[in-house]
Structures are given as C-alpha cells and as structure tokens.
C-alpha cells in the first residue's frame, strides 16, 4: 500500500501547501469540506428489489467492500439514509412503497438506478406489471447500465455520484427541500394522482371508440 496520504479532494487546488506540511495541513473552502464529508459517508438504504440486489450484497461483502468508500452503513430505515439504490425491476405493485420510501428520506437525497430494469424497464419492460424505468416517477441521479451491473460497475456508478456531490454547493443542497411526490394508486392499473384528468379523458374517448365500433359491427350485421 502506498504510504503517501491520498488527496481526498479535500484540499482546495487554489492553495499550494509546502511538501513537508502535506497530510498535516489542509486549506479548503466550506463547500469543499462539507461535500468531502458527505460523499465519504453516503449511507445507502438497505433495499433490494431483484437480481441486482444480490450484486449489491456482493459489493458490500468482502471482495468489493464498499466500506472503503464509507458506504457500509446500510440503513433499513429511509430516515437515516442518503442514497437509494434502486436495485432491480420496479413493479407496479411495489411502486407506491418505493415512492413512499423516497418521500421519507431526509434531504439531501440521491437515487441511483442500478441495472437495466431500474433505468428503463430492462428485458421485462414489455410486462404488464413492470414500470419502464424508475425515472418516470423519481428523479434519478446516476444510471448504471448492465444486467446486472457487476459489483465493480456499481462502485463506478457510486463514484460518479460522489463526483456529482462534489460539484454541489451548500446553497444548492439546502436551498429548497425536494418536492414530495404523490404516491401512485393501484386501480385497474397504476395511476399517478397528477394525471387523473388525463386518465378520465382517455377512458372516455376509449369508451366512445368502442361504442362506435360496436354500432358499426351491428350495422354491418343488419
């Protein structure tokens, strides 16, 4: 292992520090030290949906060990977690719970879509109970393609998230709390409460079309 202390990105590049003081003294900005702390203690939610969750467990286990990134504290409670790794296929039946969990997370919060299914539906996209990508409902920060992404691919994705955090400022993060997302309702199909008007319009038109088709068929028969 190298003995030189790694530059964790804490030091502000604007200031030069003499060689003999490196590793002892750091000059930085408030934003930088704040982000440095945040990105090295990202607590993911202990939350797995499908196949990708097994790779997430492997990432947490001895061989890949994301404790090296300060992420080992997987919290079963959304209130204590910073990042939600959506690991696996999102189904309509599970969606209300996922949205609720997201709403319960404390700001600042991040969502990582792990794998093809969470990003865009994946091979199961055509299924009647599958949500074609969690980004239809939640704001996603990083997408990790793959089916499933290998543990190294997941770590790469989480490093991308760290990079993203590095670029944020305190003002940005605490400027406005993130919006609460209305919880979808399980009706005849999944319904977004914001779309009720659209749904009513659609079903009315559909009924009209069907009635017209039926009348036509009757006329043809007669």
């Amino acid at each position: 292992m190298s003995t030189k202390p790694k530059d964790e990105g804490l030091n502000s590049p604007k200031y030069e520090i003499p060689e003999d003081l490196q590793g002892t003294v750091t000059i930085t900005t408030l934003d930088r030290i704040y982000n440095w702390g945040r990105r090295n203690s990202l607590w993911p939610m202990m939350f797995g949906l499908a196949c990708c969750a097994i790779e997430m467990i492997c990432t947490a286990a001895a061989r890949f060990d994301f404790a090296r990134f300060g992420m080992e504290v997987m919290r079963p409670s959304p209130r204590q977690s910073d990042v939600m790794i959506v690991a696996g296929t999102v189904t309509k039946k599970m969606l209300p719970q996922i949205v609720r969990l997201y709403n319960q997370m404390a700001d600042p919060k991040y969502v990582v879509a792990m794998g093809a299914c969470a990003s865009g539906g994946g091979p199961f996209k055509e299924g009647y109970n599958v949500v074609a990508g969690i980004d239809k409902y939640l704001p996603v920060d990083v997408y990790i393609p793959g089916c499933p992404p290998t543990p190294q691919a997941l770590i790469y994705g989480l490093m991308k998230l760290q990079e993203k955090i590095d670029k944020q400022t305190i003002k940005e993060v605490y400027g406005q709390p993130s919006e609460m997302i209305p919880i979808p309702v399980l009706g005849p199909d999944i319904m977004d409460p914001r779309e009720y008007d659209k749904i009513r319009e659609y079903t009315r038109q559909k009924a009209e079309q069907e009635a017209a088709a039926a009348a036509e068929a009757e006329a043809a028969q007669a």
């Binding site: 865009g120 920060d141 993203k164």
Partner: peptide, 11 residues
C-alpha cells in the same frame, strides 16, 4: 462495464 451516466438518453 464502466458505463454509468447522469443522463439516460446516452443509453
């Protein structure tokens, strides 16, 4: 395998 992005339209 290092393909993670911020924007899905890249996919």
């Amino acid at each position: 395998y290092e393909l993670a992005t911020y924007d899905r339209s890249n996919n």
